[in-house]
Design a protein around this nucleic acid. Structure first.
Length: 109
DNA sequence: TGAATGACTCGAT
DNA sequence: GATCGAGCCATTC
């Protein structure tokens, strides 16, 4: 497993409950600001990782659940978020400004 | 080995 | 502002 992947997973696990962050924010925190797509790619393989990665807390920079289709079932992503107190309407996280959690701000490397 | 792909992002129109 | 197009880079075929 690449360090990049493990780092991504580690950061995602640190996201507080009821919060969410973006692929770009994670990439930036890891020093790979232009590799946001790779973060999503890493998430694609995250379902096989132990302990499981809360990938539902990672969305694109608009708070849109672009990756929900990769969950099984897809509704699981939204359900998990709502269980944690995050309102989601039409795949869009409500109050995104307050829900957004930036690792480069809340985390010290 | 070379080319295509993607759970994204940013800058230009 | 909203929309469109190009850039990015590890992984896969």
């Amino acid at each position: 497993m690449n360090k990049f992947y493990s780092d991504v997973f580690e950061v995602v696990r640190l996201i507080p409950q009821g919060r969410a962050t973006s692929y770009g924010a994670i990439a930036k925190y890891l020093g790979a600001a232009r590799s946001s797509r790779l973060v999503g790619y890493a998430m694609n393989t995250s379902h096989a990782v132990i302990p499981s990665v809360p990938a539902h807390r990672v969305v694109n920079r608009n708070g849109l659940l672009t990756g929900k289709a990769h969950f099984n079932p897809p509704e699981r992503m939204q359900n998990r978020l709502e269980e944690e107190g995050v309102r989601v309407i039409e795949d869009q996280i409500q109050n995104w400004d307050e829900v957004f959690w930036d690792p480069s701000i809340h985390l010290i490397l």
